[in-house]
Design a protein around this nucleic acid. Structure first.
Length: 325
DNA sequence: AACACATACAACCGCACTTTG
DNA sequence: TCAAAGTGCGGTTGTATGTGT
């Protein structure tokens, strides 16, 4: 679209506005309205371009502008809306009376983004930045190339257990980085989880939220129900679980009570295909819940279970305990 | 006290998109 | 249908202020 830029006229002032210019602009708009922004500077007697006047008015001089520090509540709203809308600052600003899109953008970039990064949360995806070093190291430790040279033919008896352990690790890595849901835009349920649990970024969590089973459509209780022996290796507590020390003692970050109060979160489902009917979710809430289509989108669940099964089948011998020690 | 560096924020720029006449 | 005007956005810059040496 051919269009002449509005701000390349020579002789027009740029840079910070003086109190006199502010006063002139405010007086003119209060008396006449802004009308055409392009025509405004001449009519008001300002040596500025229309765009500069518009920005100055909308971002700073408008009487309904709220100045000062963002409240915790405002931070929560920004975080929440950003998780859904992304960088749609004007849409976010529409939910924060008195705040401008530019102000929110600046606040996000200078405060919130930094804090999220410091706390291990990706400000773009609102998901934890994967701390996969431990798992990668374990995976490498368990790789066939590592053991190919070290293990004697006798030790190959342990190969099935090693394969199972490696498969398990791969499953965990995939659970941490699930494939994106194909039916809805990228949203940040972890962001809501984060807010719901910690009440805003002013009191951030430590970056150890490696698992988020509700968001992956997996209920840890149901997940481990089929494996009675798992209690010996995995600690299941209210709303979460802890893996055995041999896997680094990684723990889930499932915060059940708070999450149930957030209606955009998916309901919990069984990780088992045969039990994959929706639980705790009405037909109405399915309609309201855009993530519904994603609830069963957990292709790694069965893989995870299969790995566990193999893993636990071999636990009687538990050679991996010695190998990893 | 003086300086360098870091940080926060206002403001600008360029572009793409939408609205309007 | 088209061009101008208006709007929204990401990225960047300039300046004031804070902090450490």
């Amino acid at each position: 679209m051919g269009r002449s830029p509005c701000c390349n006229e020579s002789g027009l002032k740029k840079g910070p506005w003086t109190p006199e210019e502010d006063s002139t602009l405010v007086d003119f708009i209060q008396k006449n309205g802004h009308g055409s922004w392009r025509a405004l500077p001449k009519r008001a007697g300002l040596n500025r371009c229309g765009k500069s006047c518009r920005l100055r008015w909308t971002n700073y001089l408008r009487p309904d502008i709220k100045r000062g520090k963002f409240s915790d509540e405002e931070e929560k709203i920004i975080f929440d809306l950003h998780s859904v809308l992304g960088n749609k600052w004007s849409k976010i600003a529409a939910h924060l009376p008195g705040r401008t899109d530019n102000e929110i953008k600046n606040y996000w970039n200078t405060h919130m983004r930094k804090q999220l990064l410091q706390n291990g949360i990706d400000p773009k995806t609102h998901k934890p930045l994967p701390n996969l070093n431990l798992l990668v190291n374990l995976s490498q430790l368990l790789s066939p190339s590592t053991f190919g040279n070290l293990m004697s033919p006798l030790d190959n008896a342990f190969r099935p257990q090693l394969d199972a352990a490696q498969l398990l690790l791969q499953s965990i890595v995939q659970l941490i980085n699930p494939s994106p849901c194909p039916n809805v835009p990228e949203t940040s349920l972890l962001g809501l989880n984060y807010i719901s649990k910690f009440g805003g970024i002013s009191d951030p969590p430590q970056p150890q939220a490696l698992f988020d089973f509700p968001n992956l459509g997996v209920n840890p209780h149901q997940l481990f129900n089929n494996f009675p022996n798992v209690a010996d290796s995995v600690t299941i507590f209210e709303g979460g679980f802890q893996l055995p020390e041999v896997l680094g003692g990684l723990n889930s970050d499932y915060c059940g009570d708070e999450i149930e109060n957030i209606n955009v979160l998916p309901a919990l489902v069984s990780a088992c295909e045969e039990n994959s009917k929706i639980v705790n979710q009405t037909e109405e809430s399915k309609k309201m819940n855009p993530m519904y289509e994603c609830i069963n989108y957990s292709p790694t669940s069965n893989m995870f279970e299969a790995a566990w099964e193999q893993f636990l089948d071999g636990e009687a011998n538990a050679p991996w305990k010695d190998i990893l020690a």
